[in-house]
């Protein structure tokens, strides 16, 4: 199932009512924002994007496509918050530091199998998320759960499970009244 711009925008979510702001959202706008310029001086946004995309290819189910644009769009919104951006940057730096030490390469350059093994070895599968916790807990919070939140609060992520309007998505007043599709 393909993740679409609608999902990315839904994951972005802060759209007021009815998605009126969606139409105006464009990648060129994100790149041109003052916030983006400011954060570029302090965090490595490209590395964050690359790392989370590489992680998404592991933590998202195989039937999902269109991940790159989806993750990129979601991250644009998240990186606008300097505190979150800094914490993401630090977590990703730690991920790369450990990947270099254990596998001799940055996380994003590992094979899919290598990335999966790394995330399990770092403990992100069994850790409870905690933004202020151990490395495992921070990787779970800022990498794994960041991505899972984006996906499963989006319409396509919800539809994978059988719910077109998942919690966190302003999907309107119709779906709760509808029966299952035949």
């Amino acid at each position: 199932m393909e993740l679409t711009r609608r999902d990315a925008v839904a994951a972005l979510a802060a759209l007021g009512v009815g998605g009126a702001a969606v139409a105006g959202l464009d990648r060129s706008d994100w790149g041109a924002s003052g916030d983006a310029d400011a954060r570029a001086e302090t965090v490595d946004a490209d590395r964050i994007r690359e790392t989370l995309l590489a992680a998404a290819e592991v933590v998202y189910p195989r039937e999902v496509t269109g991940i790159e644009e989806f993750v990129g769009a979601f991250l644009e919104g998240r990186l606008e918050d300097p505190t979150h951006a800094t914490a993401l940057d630090e977590t990703v730096a730690k991920v790369d530091e450990l990947a270099e030490a254990w596998y001799g390469a940055r996380f994003a350059t590992l094979s899919a199998g290598g990335r999966e093994s790394f995330l399990r070895e770092v403990g992100a599968d069994t850790a409870d998320e905690d933004p202020d916790g151990t490395t495992a807990e921070r990787v779970r919070y800022y990498v794994v759960n960041e991505l899972l939140l984006a996906l499963y609060a989006s319409p396509t992520g919800g539809e994978l499970v059988g719910i077109e309007n998942p919690q966190g998505h302003p999907g309107g007043m119709d779906t709760y009244q509808r029966g299952p599709e035949p």
Binding site: A14, G77, D81, P131
Partner: peptide
């Protein structure tokens, strides 16, 4: 801010 602002 556009986008989903993080919990923190």
């Amino acid at each position: 801010m556009s986008g989903r602002p993080p919990a923190e």
